[in-house]
């Protein structure tokens, strides 16, 4: 799939990236104005990774996500109003107000959930891959995580299990250069995190995570390999988070110049330039995928979707404390193994 030359793909990729951007900006704004509670981790600047990766997936494929997971949800096809309602503590939110930003899942679209624990989703992804394998399915699991996860024990154990059992899992690292304040330069003694893949006997590549095409190509290769029984792969996508880690972040660990240099590499601006033919990467012989007005349409659509989600969510009833403990345990179903209940 060539995102920059195929108009439909270009439109989808651009609208998805703008939707993530506008969603995150809206959340940032509501939070700053005291209209939103709790904490959240914004993925502004990283939109190309979930967009490119999820465009390589098919219906039924799974993802596991992270604390910085709004983009993964959106790219996998989650409903914006249910996401926004969750953040606004509404009964109509994905988790009925029980989970908030760090636990949004959309099982219907194969999103097994964001996760508040760094690398928590990695062995879970291996397990979902094991389930697919055992029932003879053809689905693939993409596990998103950040650079920080790559130093967690759970990451190593999950990747190793997927590797020894050839499970259909693609491990996608959003290397945004910092685990909170700890830079990858200080946290790793390897040049690229993809090198870690070789320690588990699986392919590992490093790509430009601000280029949805590069992310897509690497993930699509890995998905194809996983789907055809070739086992897991590791894709490291180099990107950058423009905003702080969370609301407490005063950016003491990085310079204004560094942030500015990455803002100049805005994945959305670069992609717009590429699809309209103005970018350095545009092939001279190819017609631009999108016109300026197409681009404007994508922006407007994204803005309107987010506005509509906010309106719908604000009108919804607040999460109800009367049913707070309802979902602590799932109700019992039928005995699964034959026989009787005593």
């Amino acid at each position: 799939m060539t995102l920059t030359t195929d108009p439909e793909s270009a439109r989808h990729a651009l609208t998805t990236m703008w939707t993530i951007r506008r969603f995150e900006e809206a959340v940032d704004d509501m939070f700053a104005r005291g209209l939103m509670h709790g904490t959240m981790h914004l993925s502004i600047g990283q939109e190309a990774v979930p967009t490119g990766a999820c465009m390589a997936l098919s219906e039924g494929d799974y993802i596991t996500s992270t604390h910085r997971g709004h983009g993964h949800c959106i790219a996998k096809g989650a409903k914006l109003d249910a996401m926004m309602a969750e953040l606004l503590a509404k009964e109509t939110g994905y988790c009925r107000g029980r989970g908030g930003s760090m636990h949004i899942a959309d099982v219907a679209t194969g999103n097994l959930g964001a996760n508040g624990i760094v690398a928590g989703g990695v062995p879970i992804a291996a397990g979902a891959g094991l389930a697919v394998r055992m029932r003879g399915g053809s689905e693939v699991v993409v596990s998103f995580f950040g650079d920080g996860a790559v130093n967690e024990g759970a990451w190593h154990e999950g990747v190793n299990l997927a590797a020894i059992w050839d499970l259909p899992v693609v491990f996608v690292c959003e290397n945004n250069r910092y685990g909170m304040s700890m830079s990858v330069d200080r946290a790793f003694n390897v040049d690229t995190l993809a090198e870690r893949a070789h320690g588990y006997g699986i392919p590992g590549v490093t790509v430009d995570g601000n280029d949805p095409q590069a992310v897509h190509d690497a993930v699509a290769d890995a998905v194809q390999r996983a789907r055809s029984g070739g086992g897991p792969s590791f894709v490291e996508a180099l990107t950058y988070r423009w905003k702080g880690h969370s609301k407490s972040d005063k950016n003491l660990y990085r310079t204004r110049e560094e942030i500015e240099s990455w803002r100049e590499r805005d994945p959305i601006a670069a992609f717009e330039a590429a699809v309209t033919g103005g970018g350095a990467t545009a092939g001279a012989a190819t017609a631009p995928a999108l016109s300026a007005s197409d681009v404007e349409e994508c922006r407007t659509l994204a803005r309107d979707r987010v506005r509509e989600a906010i309106r719908t969510a604000n009108a919804a009833p607040d999460a109800d404390a009367a049913t707070l403990t309802d979902a602590v345990y799932a109700p019992a179903g039928e005995p699964i193994a034959g026989g009787a209940r005593a």
Binding site: Y62, T64, V107, L112, G120, V122, P123, I124, A125, A126, G127, A128, G129, L130, A131, V132, M134, R135, V141, A154, E157, G158, L161
Partner: peptide, 10 residues
């Protein structure tokens, strides 16, 4: 963790 994932996936 793999049990959690396998359980989630059916």
């Amino acid at each position: 963790g793999a049990a959690v994932g396998a359980g989630l996936a059916g």
